[in-house]
Design a protein around this nucleic acid. Sequence first.
DNA 1: CTGAAAGCGCTTACAG
DNA 2: CTGAAAGCGCTTACAG
Lengths: 336, 336
Amino acid sequence: MKKKVSIKDVALKAGVSTALVSYVLNDRHTNRINKLTAEKIKSAAKELNYRPNSIAQSLKAKKTHTIALLVADIANPFASQIARIIEDEMSNKGYLILIGSSDEKVEKLEQLINIFQDRQVDGFIIAPVQGSEKCILELANSQVPVVLIDRYFNNIDLPVITTNNYGASYQATEHLIKRGKKNIGLLAFETELIHLNERVNGYKRAVSDKGLISKSENIKYINEANIDREVAKAIDYFLFEEAKIDALFFATNKLALSGLKKLMTVDIKIPDELALITFDESEAFDIFKVPVSHIKQPLYEIAKEAVELITGLIEGKNLKIKPRVYNSKLIIKHSS
Amino acid sequence: MKKKVSIKDVALKAGVSTALVSYVLNDRHTNRINKLTAEKIKSAAKELNYRPNSIAQSLKAKKTHTIALLVADIANPFASQIARIIEDEMSNKGYLILIGSSDEKVEKLEQLINIFQDRQVDGFIIAPVQGSEKCILELANSQVPVVLIDRYFNNIDLPVITTNNYGASYQATEHLIKRGKKNIGLLAFETELIHLNERVNGYKRAVSDKGLISKSENIKYINEANIDREVAKAIDYFLFEEAKIDALFFATNKLALSGLKKLMTVDIKIPDELALITFDESEAFDIFKVPVSHIKQPLYEIAKEAVELITGLIEGKNLKIKPRVYNSKLIIKHSS
DNA sequence: CTGAAAGCGCTTACAG
DNA sequence: CTGAAAGCGCTTACAG
């Protein structure tokens, strides 16, 4: 193992103290350092191919220039796309991101938070899982900067960045109604996550605002663990039992993917007999029988704002804690 | 800012030296430490909610328990799925992963490597970009453990984990031929990446082995920057100009997604008039007109082996440097 | 059984 | 203009 070259080696080679090496290499006190000495140091560093050890710098500075990004599952396209944008934006500001997947489990999230705190990350960007209020609050109380994305809790005093789940859902439902649909089914997850329930609320409100008869059987709550089976069953009910819906709204892309798969096996005219619309995006939506209308979340805006907030907080800015809501966009395709 | 509690605070509270605190909390020399002292220390640590500072530990130990995972783009499902498995497996071994996207650019990869080396990561798992031989080699020469996944170079003395690109491609082509197809088109990327060109080679070899006439016009090399336009053009050529192919093989999932989108606009019977098969997977393949046959790469095996190798190397095991090739699986669906 | 001390690789206030 | 020294929060060989 080639020994790594340290600041000592550079100092030795240049015939100066480590202090001076540090000053020169960090462009500090440049005015009161001898030009020639500075040159000597620089060329010594170059010759030795010296690179400062970030770990040592972090220990001294109590700052790691690293943040933790905690999502439910980095393999989920929503998460990985956000991650990519955050990576780029943070990298522009000199930060690295450490990634953790909580798998929708509070215990795992807690564990990850502990590990990342031990690692002295400068801040956390978290898409919190259901039931994690307490551990998130505890984290925030330890004075580490935290910003929440996508998901949030009521009455929690933290910066939140999300989309207008309620409004977008309302708008999508309204759109289906304008298209003449009168009996709209909704597939949602069985969950306590507020942002997902807001989607249900937006749908409900639009249905009643527009004077449709709102039937509770038109909403099916799916258990994610048995998604394919439950979605298929719900769709069978929607189409072939008394429900007889003429439009179907998927509350998330996972539900849509599962539902579209099921609909492949059904002979039905889209959008005439059944209109479709879904929250989120997927590369799959363009190659279904008919391209699928969807609600495009403002990933870039969410990620970018998360980065602004977290770096602002890290730098000690006193930011107003209020939810930042970025509007989703309704993308109308042939399915509705 | 609440001050973080350090080992000193614990020592003070327990009335012992920091050395002892360290020993007790790390279960070292347990046999020769007074049981009562140990208890005192443990309860002091607990009361103060002490957590060791990993940065300080890393500086001392010259080991960060962190590895860098460098991919072309973490937002790409292939990368994010691999990342997720690596995250889990590394986490089991007490490691964290720092993620970087090189965007297929050598300069960006070099930059990332530098940054991660400064951060003293214990090892690198890299899906290298085209033309990065030199910088990868340089990295390896600095004695940091490096393992390459997915992509590789000839004559580079590093552990490589990949799939049998040639063989899987051969097998897929053979399958199409067995189905009675005689004029098979191939859509591939214009690239120097060996693993991708091996896919072309496998196709070519199967075509000639099976006695089909091999026409160079049946292979179209797509420039990724203009993927949708070029794929559409190639497919128009394949179907409506002299080529008249009866089967189409996509060399990657990106090409397939683009091609399937184009095929949505074409009225053609699949698989009778045109059979389809593609490398890689996508959630989209199940909801195309007809479910699409594909070559499923052994992501889990690749990721798992990458973790075994990198941790082995970090622990100083002397591993045989030979390519590890895991077989892809042909998943036959209705499209072929 | 326990503590004082050195050291990991930096930065920085201080003295000269 | 420059260097000696302290210190970030740990670990560990050594002495007793």
